[in-house]
């Protein structure tokens, strides 16, 4: 049975889709049969980030409504063999998704795949709730910013109450914190929230920290998940994240400001 992982955040624009694409790619590169599902019905983006927008024929809503078979809607990634994408519909809205339909799709995919990543839409409404409902694990994407942290906190509350595991009283969803757009320089100057502050407020395990990087924007626009950019800091950070997701112990990188002056070394070292 596949492991179902939801990538969620509450707040929009924090990097859910980028992270879902990068992590799915990383899992597949490590030899896991992986499918990534776009739950953002009406605002389809994952296909763009994955660079397969020209190959979309059928989508998740078609499958749920019985207009197409799952195998017809699944798109095979051009770069990695065992990676598939199930795109969202751009012309429908979130009401086109039914809980039974989603359950059936996940059940069928679960027989063939090792990992199912659900790329959640922003918000806490139907789309987001369906994306998280059947999850075994959750990656909560957070920017070092107060509003993002608060929204992530809200999502964590929903993960603990509005999911199948919670409703059935099963073992709770395993929650992971993924901090994106982290800029150690701006953290040092106080513009951004500190890593430790975020961890203290959200009180869950940190699975990865992705530095703010030009590579991410470039990757999005080229439709190549940033994991493929092995020379970039963000690419390496996602590779680390995937390794941790697979249970490996990888030290944290990219969280410290490199060019520290002597003075800030003397006075800034008190925190931690």
């Amino acid at each position: 049975m596949a492991k179902i992982i939801v990538v969620t955040s509450g707040k929009g624009g924090v990097g859910k889709t980028t992270s879902a694409a990068a992590i799915a790619t990383g899992l597949a590169l490590r030899g896991n049969k992986t499918v990534v599902i776009d739950f953002d019905v009406g605002l389809r983006n994952l296909d763009l980030i994955m660079g397969c927008e020209r190959r979309v024929v059928y989508d998740l809503v078609n499958v749920i409504q019985g207009e197409a078979g799952l195998s017809q809607a699944l798109i095979r990634d051009k770069r990695v063999d065992n990676l598939h994408i199930l795109p969202a519909s751009q012309t429908r809205d979130k009401d086109a998704l039914s809980q039974e339909g989603v359950e059936k799709v996940l059940e069928t995919l679960g027989k063939d795949f090792d990992y199912i990543l659900c790329d959640s839409p922003a918000g806490i409404e139907r789309g987001a709730q369906l994306a998280m409902y059947f999850a075994d694990e959750a990656i909560v994407v957070t920017n070092p910013e107060v509003s993002s942290v608060r929204d992530s906190d809200r999502i964590l509350g929903l993960l603990a109450s509005k999911t199948r595991r919670a409703e059935r009283g099963e073992e709770p969803i395993k929650e992971h914190l993924l901090i994106t757009r982290y800029n150690p320089g701006r953290v040092d100057s106080g513009d951004m929230l500190n890593l430790d502050d975020i961890r203290e407020i959200l009180a869950i395990d940190l699975i990865g920290l992705i530095p703010e990087s030009e590579a991410v924007l470039r990757a999005s626009n080229q439709g190549v998940p940033v994991t493929h950019d092995a020379d970039s800091d963000a690419g390496q950070a996602y590779t680390d994240t995937v390794a941790r997701l697979l249970g490996e112990d990888v030290p944290l990188r990219f969280h410290e400001y490199q060019k520290k002056s002597l003075l800030s070394r003397m006075f800034g070292g008190g925190r931690r």
Binding site: R150, D151, D153, R154, G157, A160, S161, I201, A203
Partner: peptide
């Protein structure tokens, strides 16, 4: 967590943990 409400309608409430904003 934000958005959650914990009530003890009859007596004291002890939270072993933090109460987050919201």
């Amino acid at each position: 967590r934000s958005g959650q409400q914990v009530t003890s309608p009859e007596g004291d409430l002890v939270v072993v943990g933090s109460v987050n904003a919201g």
